[in-house]
C-alpha cells in the first residue's frame, strides 16, 4: 500500500483545520484543550509524512522527524497536564469550565 505524501499532508491539514475550528467555536475549556491536542497531532502526522518521504528518497529512515514527533507527544501531554490543572483551579472558583465565564477581553479592568 502506497499512500502518496500529498494525501497525508492534506489529511493533516484537515485535522489542523478541525482543531482550529474547535478552538474558535467551542466554549468548553476541556474541548478547547482537546482541539489544541488535535492541532499538535496534525503536526505529528505531517512530520511523519515528511519523514517517510525523505526516507524513501534517502533509502533509509532519518531519525529527525520521528524524534520530533515523540517530543511533540510529550509536550502535548505536559500541556494537557498544566492546562487541566488550571481548569480545575478555575472550576473550583467558578463551578464551570465554560470560556464564556471569563471576563471578555478588554473588560478585566472593570472587575476591580
Amino acid at each position: 500500500m502506497n499512500v502518496p505524501t500529498e494525501h497525508l499532508l492534506i489529511l493533516s491539514a484537515i485535522l489542523f483545520a478541525i482543531g482550529m475550528g474547535g478552538f474558535l467555536l467551542r466554549r468548553n475549556m476541556i474541548v478547547v484543550l482537546m482541539s489544541i491536542e488535535l492541532m499538535l497531532n496534525a503536526a505529528n502526522l505531517a512530520f511523519l509524512a515528511g519523514a517517510r518521504q525523505h526516507a524513501a528518497l534517502a533509502g533509509h529512515w532519518v531519525a529527525e522527524g520521528p524524534v520530533m514527533v515523540t517530543f511533540v507527544i510529550a509536550v502535548a501531554a505536559v500541556e494537557a497536564a498544566v492546562g487541566l490543572a488550571l481548569v480545575i483551579a478555575f472550576y473550583r472558583r467558578k463551578q464551570t469550565v465554560s470560556l464564556d465565564r471569563l471576563s471578555p477581553t478588554g473588560a478585566a479592568s472593570k472587575a476591580n
Partner: peptide, 9 residues
C-alpha cells in the same frame, strides 16, 4: 509546530 512540520516536510 504545524508550521514547523510543513517546513520539515
Amino acid at each position: 509546530v504545524f508550521g514547523i512540520s510543513l517546513l520539515y516536510a
